[in-house]
């Protein structure tokens, strides 16, 4: 008997609230722009946040309203921009592809170890104690960036440095945020010249820590034929990405080979994985 009453009570209450909510949803209905749904279908729905708004649904609303540029979706790139333009009946603009660049080449071979780190295996916590390498600006090598990448576009190579796969990176910038030492930066695809070092120590000290450190000699600054294309800041060559010429004129004379032209390895994931397999199997 009590069972029947219990079932009836629950059922009755459920029905009561269901009807109440059904009426409320009719009364409080919000008309949504049908274009928003259309845009949502085109977007990659990765919710990566690279466009600057939280999530693809916010992006869709902003785009329809006109607050967001049509080519702002970094993850989708040109393809999505074109599709969106077609769906909304407006002109497509060229989308700039952004790529993650790892600005440190001090792997296990090039750097010295001055300690053994036994803590939590994340860069964020290793950074608090200083990590294993003596250079306090270097890559910590504990792959926070690889973990943060939702697109499988990063992996650690056998030298303990992260590699960005050209074919997988969508430019969301999650790795750049994850890196506690700000070694990873987001740059447009057309950028070719990079200083692969963040060391602000004086030349001799930097050289002692790492074979490929920027020693602040200033040769690249002299070689740069555009005024202010490269400047020295705290013993470190810093590229002005807007004016520095994208050729090898500045990179030839670097004694430590830390400024390089077109060196960003256009790694394709399959090729990298198969190479790693070969090394592992010893063939």
């Amino acid at each position: 008997m009590i069972l029947i009453i219990a079932v009836l009570t629950m059922g009755g209450l459920g029905l009561f609230f269901a009807i109440g909510l059904a009426i409320a949803s009719k009364k409080l209905k919000v008309k949504e722009d049908p274009r928003v749904k259309k845009v949502m279908e085109i977007l990659p729905m990765t919710n990566c946040g690279a466009c600057g708004v939280p999530g693809c649904s916010t992006f869709a609303v902003g785009l329809v309203k006109g607050d967001i540029a049509i080519n702002a979706c970094v993850a989708g790139g040109q393809e999505v921009a074109d599709l969106l333009a077609k769906a909304l009946g407006i002109d497509s603009a060229t989308s700039v592809r952004m790529l993650a660049v790892v600005l440190c080449r001090g792997g296990d071979k090039e750097t010295r170890k001055f300690a053994t780190y036994r803590g939590d295996k994340t860069c964020a916590s290793a950074d608090l104690t200083g990590g294993e390498k003596s250079c306090s600006y270097s890559c910590l090598g504990l792959s926070d960036c690889v973990v943060s990448c939702e697109f499988g576009a990063m992996e650690m190579n056998d030298n303990g440095l992260p590699v960005v796969f050209y074919d997988k990176c969508i430019g969301c910038g999650a790795c750049a945020k994850a890196c506690p030492r700000d070694i990873i930066e987001m740059h447009s695809e057309s950028m070719k010249v990079f200083v692969y070092c963040k060391n602000k120590d004086k030349g001799p000290i930097a050289k002692k820590h790492c074979d490929v450190a920027c020693i602040g000699c200033g040769l690249c600054v002299k070689d740069c034929n555009v005024e202010g294309g490269i400047v020295m800041k705290n013993n470190l060559a810093v590229i002005n990405y807007e004016s520095c010429p994208q050729d090898d004129s500045t990179t030839k004379r670097c004694p430590t080979k830390c400024i390089l032209f077109d060196e960003e390895p256009k790694q394709i994931k399959e090729v990298f994985s198969s190479k790693a397999m070969k090394v592992a199997s010893g063939s």
């Binding site: 009590i2 219990a6 009570t9 209450l13 609230f17 109440g20 409320a24 949803s25 409080l28």
Partner: peptide
């Protein structure tokens, strides 16, 4: 009706429905 054992379930239903209502209202 001597059903205090249904207290938890019914309370959750009430709260869930109210929240739905508030959500619609705020939206």
């Amino acid at each position: 009706y001597d059903l205090p054992f249904l207290m938890n379930v019914t309370f959750i239903i009430v709260i869930a429905s109210l929240v739905q209502l508030v959500e619609m209202f705020i939206k």
